[in-house]
Computed example of a mutant assay.
Amino acid sequence: MNLDGKTLVVTGVASGIGAATASLLQQNGATVIGVDRNVPAEFSGTFIQGDLSTPEGVAAVADRVPEGVAGLLNIAGVPGTAPWQTVLAVNVFGVRDLTRLLAPKIADGGAVVNLASNVAAGWAARQLEVARFVQAADAAEALAAVAGDPEVTGNSYRFSKECVRWLTQVQASEHLGRVRVNSVSPGPVQTPILEDFKKDHGREKVEGAVALLGRAGQPQDIAEVIAFLLSPQASWINGTDLCVDGGLSAHRTVTTLASAAV
């Protein structure tokens, strides 16, 4: 893959999948503008330190991004061990609003990739609720509206990634014919927040999944797929989610249906 002359914006660049993706893109010739609230220990591109949990923070980041970038990779995210308001603010409205502000700065033929999750596989069952939340004009009002819903506040990470799945389709539709928008849904990945996922989703469940697969995913596994979605080979892939979880979702679906059929 040759990315010479292309400038790409990568959020969450300080660690994990964001860091691996930025490194891979740079190895293939891209200029990377990295965004994170934490300063990366190693990063050779242009770095923007910013807070994606507030509209003001998102706007401040967007203002520093030049015109004509080739794409936006929304990788920054907050695990479910954080306060639910923060999870939804960053994982949903941070992604939504940064994409809205940067879309006019993305050159024709560019691409956006959002990081979803395999925990959002059942998002379509809550599509109406998800759509209402994502489309709310005011993020603060949207958060207040779900404050009494334990399905949202008690499962904020899952709900946030369900929103990302829907948001990806909305964004793909909005920019049809000019900018492609897709998402990637990893399973358990060996990143600094894997321990948070064990606390949030259940240690036994996460560690059992890793044992079943033989290993946890690595940031590079996900970065390669993200990079593919930027490539000419993916030019007809739009509004789609790619599940990258080693087959975990397939196994769970088959197992569940097999049990129900007995």
Rank of each mutant, 00 (worst) to 15 (best):
I106D: 09
L257A: 09
T11P: 08
A147G: 13
S44Y: 03
L88I: 00
A144S: 08
G16C: 07
L8W: 12
D97S: 07
H201I: 05
I193H: 09
G94C: 00
A125N: 06
V130C: 02
W166L: 10
G29K: 07
Q220G: 03
L242N: 03
P192I: 11
A250T: 15
V90R: 00
E67N: 05
I226T: 11
V92R: 00
R64A: 15
L72H: 14
L102N: 05
V13F: 02
D138I: 04
V78A: 12
A120S: 14
H201Q: 15
A19F: 13
D221H: 13
G94Q: 01
Q190D: 06
R100Q: 13
F133A: 00
N118K: 05
G5E: 04
A140I: 00
P192S: 15
G177M: 13
A120P: 10
E195D: 14
A111D: 10
D221M: 10
W166N: 02
A125D: 12
E129D: 11
V146I: 13
L230A: 15
G246Q: 04
V35H: 13
S249D: 09
V210C: 01
A223W: 03
Y157A: 02
V69M: 12
G154V: 13
V10R: 08
L230P: 04
P55H: 10
L213P: 11
P188W: 02
K105Y: 06
R180C: 12
V206K: 12
H201G: 07
N114D: 04
W123T: 03
G187E: 15
T86I: 01
V65I: 15
A41S: 15
Q218N: 03
S23L: 10
A147H: 11
A60G: 01
E162G: 07
E195A: 12
A14R: 14
V189W: 01
E174S: 08
S185K: 10
A261I: 04
V189N: 01
G34I: 09
I33G: 14
F159A: 02
S117A: 08
A124Q: 15
G94V: 05
F228V: 06
G246P: 08
L257W: 15
R126S: 13
E42N: 09
T255H: 13
V152M: 06
P104S: 07
G50P: 12
Q127P: 00
K105A: 03
F47Q: 04
D245M: 14
A227V: 13
A107V: 11
W236N: 12
L242C: 10
A258T: 07
Q190W: 08
E204V: 11
L213G: 08
A227W: 08
P219S: 04
S117R: 01
T21C: 10
Q85W: 03
